[in-house]
Write a protein that binds this DNA or RNA. Structure first.
Lengths: 225, 225
DNA sequence: TCAAAAGTGTTAAGTTTACACCCATGA
DNA sequence: TCATGGGTGTAAACTTAACACTTTTGA
């Protein structure tokens, strides 16, 4: 023991991830099955313990990488959860992070391997420990942020149609919006660029594909949806 | 050792408090001097280590009580700070909380005893470790919240004038607002009640004192400033 | 009597909302 | 040919912002 603060208690610290995805018009969360005892087999968020040589943010990135094979995932801290008995095994302080990923980037095989599945945000089952609370807070924070900052694009493919983008906002906000009003606002944001490519998978006529231009956004960050 | 998770590392966990006050038209933060080594004597937020028998929220309440002698302080979590080398002594993961108090409730003697002082939010000196970051994030979160929820009253005496309330909003948002427009919006909020008392300390003429009615607010929570 | 803060309404500008039809295509 | 989703503009309602003078009173 070489520390300065020897008289104080130490705690296990974990990270838990609320991973949002958008598919078939639904906002979804990756829910897994707990691999450790106690509570082995219960439905749970995916998480892991923080190691001595990494920051909590690095731990969250590591855990996300373990699960998805993806790097540089958009991620924000939800907060620390530290009730004394929140974990039935032993005291654990857990830091929750939410992440936004494009469901197409996540391989089916890794999904099966880790026994995780996409669950509609409105149909989350009872989860291990206080994970339902974490999901609730993450959802609220994400909803706030998505209307002020252009983070929605993390949930979509690089090229997307305006209808996809609209459905995403509708799913997040839980209310449908008027198509013409929505598109009017999009037109005012120069950083949502129309390409000359057309997506024919969603309709017979086809819809123009758009792209988020980060550089243009940073020149004039006037986002509001 | 009786835990389930024996193979994982444990960490010191602390709480640090960003205590906001409003006085003489200024938004201020309580800044102290660090009592422990390393960094003893440096300017710092007030904090303390989490104990085994308390949640992190309880720890924050305890620390706030130690410092101010006040209970039931309005408090919200800012987030967890967990870089590996954030504390020069030993690895410490710290959870920051911001608190709102009425400066009149805080006795001068306790203030001297703990060697803390109110510092204008725009003149915060370099603080220990990552405490400047914590203050910055706390300020941002508080600013967001104060315009959506009626938390400003925690910074004011029970009875306050509309000018005081306006100055508070101006200090938090960093911009002055039009008096007539401000008062118009106040009038629409029934839970900000005019009393028949008059404060004569701020002007010769005197100004009506108002009060926040929590019950009325909860019946119709239509706050927006 | 005058300096200093309290109190009070109206109008223009800007933003948000409501609303309906034609288009292109594959089945 | 028709069902399906793609694409487009205008007017009314509402919200926000700009703006100036009178009142009260203690020094």
């Amino acid at each position: 023991m070489t520390g300065y603060y020897q008289e104080y208690s130490k705690f296990l610290v974990a990270v838990d991830c609320i991973i949002f995805g958008f598919d078939k018009g639904e906002l979804r969360v990756l829910i897994g099955k707990r691999k450790l005892n106690p509570g082995c087999g219960q439905r749970s968020l995916y998480g892991g313990f923080v190691r001595e040589d990494e920051s909590i943010e690095e731990a969250a990135n590591r855990v996300l990488y373990q699960l998805t094979g993806l790097d540089h995932i958009f991620m924000r801290q939800v907060g620390a959860f530290g009730n004394v008995n929140r974990d039935p095994g032993e005291r654990v302080i857990s830091i929750a992070y939410y992440a936004l990923i494009n469901v197409n980037d996540y391989s089916q095989s890794l999904q099966k391997q880790h026994e995780v599945e996409w669950v509609n945000i409105n149909e989350i089952p009872t989860l291990y420990s206080d994970h339902n609370l974490m999901v609730k807070k993450a959802r609220k924070m994400m909803k706030e942020k998505i209307s002020r900052e252009p983070i929605s694009f993390n949930l979509l493919p690089e090229l997307f149609t305006l209808t996809q983008l609209q459905r995403l906002y509708e799913a997040v906000n839980g209310e449908i919006v008027d198509k013409r009003n929505f598109r009017k606002r999009i037109k005012e944001m120069d950083f949502i660029e129309k390409t000359n490519k057309i997506d024919k998978t969603g309709s017979k006529r086809g819809a123009y594909l758009y792209r988020f231009n980060k550089t243009t956004y940073e020149e004039d960050p006037n986002f509001k949806l």
